[in-house]
Design a protein around this nucleic acid. Structure first.
Lengths: 234, 234
DNA sequence: GACAAGCAGATTGTCGACAATCTAACAAGG
DNA sequence: CCTTGTTAGATTGTCGACAATCTGCTTGTC
C-alpha cells in the first residue's frame, strides 16, 4: 500500500465556518474593538439561524477575542495599552521557553519549513498585502511552538496569537501606510538555523521589542479617544 | 456616601449555570476522561433545552476540558502522561514569571490573603475533603497570578489550572487514599512573604516537582489501560 | 423643569421540532 | 469468510418561534 497520509477532512458544520468568518473579520480589524455583534443582523447576512451563530460566538468569547454581557450583547474586545503590554511580556517568556524546547527537536523538516514560511512572508511583503503579511509573520514565528512538542504551550500561544494579530492589524489599519519593504526576519531565521540557542532567545526578545514600540504608541493613541465612540459595552 | 463596593450580581443565564455544573463534574472527576456527553440525556436531567447546554459545551471545549467531533459527540478530554508533563513544564515557566511580576506588587492585602488561603487549605486537609483541598491549594497558588497584574497571564493560568485540577482529582480518586496530613505549603508561603525572590522561584519549581512524580506515575498507569474502555472518541 | 412610572421596540436567551449525519446490525454477493 | 451495500435507530446540527430582559421614550405628577 502506498504510504500516503491524508489530512483530516474539513469541518462541515455551519458553526465552524461561522467561527472562521467571524474570527477573520475580527483579526483583520473589519470588526472594530468594542463593536457590538447583532445576532439577528449577522445571522441574516450569513443566511444562517441564530443557533450556530451563537455557538460560534461562545467559542470566540472563550478564545478571548469577544466578550459577552448577558442580555446586553456580545462585543469585540476593547484594546487597551495595558493589554498589549501584557500580551507581549508573556509572549517573550513563552518564546524563550519554546526555543528551548524546540532546539533539540530541529530536523531537516524544520529547516525546510522555516524557509518556506520565511518565503511566504517575503512574498506577502512584496505584494503589499498587509493582512497576509501579519498572518505569515505570525506563522513563521509559530514554528518554534509547533516543534516544541508541548501541546499546552502550543495552544496557549495560539490564543495569544489571536490577539497579537488583532493588535497588529489595528495598528496597520490606523497608520495606513505601506509596510516596510526590508526583511526584518532575516536575522531571526538565521539564528534559529544556527548553533547558538542563547543568541536565538536573546534575539527573539529584542526583535519583539522592536515592533512593540510602534504598537504601543498606537495603543496609547487608543486610550485617549476611549471616551467617545458609540456602541461600547459599559 | 459610604464607600462600599458591591460584587457583580450572579449570572442569571441557564448557560452560565450549566457551565459551572459541567465544569465541576469534570474537574472533580465525576465525569471520566474520554466519556461522551449525551446532549439529550443531560438536558433532560438538568431540565433545560439543548440550546443553552450546547452553548455551555462549546465554552468548555474552548476551555480545553472537553473535545468535540462534529456529528460524533462531545467528550471529556483524554489524559495522557505527556499532557501532564506538558502542563507542568509550562506551569513552571509561568510560575517563575508570575512571581517576578507579583513580587514588587506585594502589599498588606497580599500578605493577608495568602494567610487566608493557606488557612483554607489546612482546613480542607483537616476535614479530609480532598476535592476542596485541591481547589484551595490551587487558589493559594493562584495568588501570585492575581497579583502579577497581567490579565493575559492570569487567563492563561486559569486555563492551565482547569486541567491541573482535573489531573489531581483523577489522581486522588484513583489511589483512593487519605491525603497527607502535613502541611506541604508552609515553606512556599513563608518564602512568598520573605525577601528573597530567587529563592521563592526556586522553591516553586521544586515544590511542583514533588507532586509531579506521583501524578506522573498515575498517568503512566492510565497509558497502559488506554486501549480498552468503551465510549471513547477515535 | 425635574423626576419617577410605565409603555413600546429591539435584542438576547430558551424552547421544541425537524434535518443531516453517524453507527451498528444485517443482507447480498464474490 | 470477507467485503460491500442497505437500512433502522440514535445522536448531533440547525431552524423558526416564543419568553425574558434591557433601553429609550413618553407621560404624568410635583
Amino acid at each position: 500500500m502506498a504510504k500516503l497520509d491524508f489530512s483530516p477532512i474539513a469541518d462541515t458544520t455551519r458553526r465552524a465556518e461561522i467561527v472562521a468568518l467571524l474570527r477573520r473579520a475580527i483579526l483583520t480589524g473589519q470588526l472594530e474593538p468594542g463593536q457590538k455583534l447583532n445576532e439577528l443582523r449577522i445571522s441574516e447576512q450569513m443566511r444562517v439561524s441564530r443557533a450556530p451563530l451563537r455557538e460560534a460566538m461562545r467559542e470566540l468569547v472563550q478564545e478571548g477575542v469577544l466578550t459577552s454581557i448577558p442580555y446586553a450583547g456580545t462585543f469585540v474586545i476593547d484594546v487597551a495599552a495595558k493589554d498589549i503590554i501584557d500580551a507581549y511580556s508573556l509572549n517573550k517568556v513563552l518564546d524563550e521557553f519554546a526555543i528551548e524546547l524546540a532546539w533539540p527537536q530541529r530536523d531537516q523538516r524544520f529547516f525546510d519549513e522555516i524557509d518556506r514560511r520565511h518565503e511566504a512572508v517575503k512574498q506577502a511583503t512584496r505584494a503589499l498585502d498587509t493582512t497576509r503579511q501579519i498572518e505569515t509573520a505570525l506563522q513563521l514565528h509559530g514554528l518554534i511552538y509547533e516543534w516544541a512538542d508541548n501541546s499546552v504551550l502550543l495552544e496557549t500561544w495560539q490564543r495569544l496569537t489571536s490577539r497579537l494579530q488583532m493588535y497588529f492589524a489595528l495598528h496597520q489599519r490606523a497608520r495606513n501606510e505601506p509596510v516596510p519593504a526590508e526583511d526584518v526576519h532575516e536575522t531571526y531565521v538565521t539564528l534559529l538555523k544556527g548553533a547558538d540557542m542563547r543568541a536565538a532567545q536573546r534575539h527573539a526578545r529584542e526583535h519583539i521589542d522592536l515592533d512593540f514600540e510602534e504598537l504601543l504608541a498606537y495603543a496609547r493613541g487608543l486610550e485617549k479617544r476611549a471616551s467617545k465612540g458609540a456602541d461600547r459595552p459599559r
